[in-house]
Amino acid sequence: MLMDAEVIDKKRNPRIMKNNLMKMLFLFSTLIGLVILIVLLSTTLLDGWRYLTLDFFTNFSSSRPSRAGVKGAIIGTLWLMAFTTPIAIFLSVGTALYLEEYAPKNKFTKFVETNIANLAGVPSVVFGLLGLTIFVRQFGLGNSVLAASLTLALMIMPVIVVASQEALRTVPVAVREASIGMGASKWQTVYRIILPAAIPGIITGIILAISRAIGETAPLVVIGIPVALLATPSSPLDSFQALPMQIYNWVKMPQAEFQNLTAAGIIVLLALLMMMNLVAIVIRNKYSKRY
């Protein structure tokens, strides 16, 4: 016998102990993140929940904490997302479809793909500068909803493109062949077979990206979104307030009460986020199909 039974016996316990040790280590990593998250959320909720009054939602921003509210910021953020989302989806899903389904598989396509993936790592403040130079100044859009939406859409585009490409790649070749083999055009195959199968993955990417955009502050600072504005936008060319800017502004204030308002603002932002995620999960489950 080449396998020495004595050696195997001797090594068995250390092997199993090592496995348990590693398991504990990984559990520890998970718990650290979880505990910190719970602490953060609970302190925010404790600080802020008492300030979530009706007045808080119906008042504009103010220098007096007792009269400050998030009406302008919520409505502004909703306007911002209402334009960012469709622009981002159109650009990103279009790009992903072109790269995966239509583009010839050559070095140029590969080059474009790599660069789009790299864009995902560019700091958001750089996108802010790009927005300031091109949309705010060059196109003369000023610090409007449209300028900010275009900037944020460009910022989140790489994330959606990469997620959509991954989703498109999971659609089996066999069903593409079946459709193409019956004389369907590329677009018919994409629209009727590939997109319905890829949509859960694409939606996941979109939601991740929008969640990032909704809380993004740096590009808005660079574009010059006002922190004190006593009006809501009535067209995409109007200027607006945004929740993350409002929170950022309050947290800088010296009065202690503003810290509580900050917490309340964060709760509102989180609630918006969770609502969006809920919608996404519903859509995803509706379209979920298995192969």
């Binding site: 066999a174 069903v175 062949e177 079946a178 459709s179 083999g181 019956m182 077979i193 199909k289 192969y291």
Partner: peptide, 12 residues
């Protein structure tokens, strides 16, 4: 010119 493939490949 229709085609039937090696593995059954119905659409979902």
């Amino acid at each position: 010119v229709g085609m039937v493939f090696q593995k059954p490949n119905p659409f979902p």
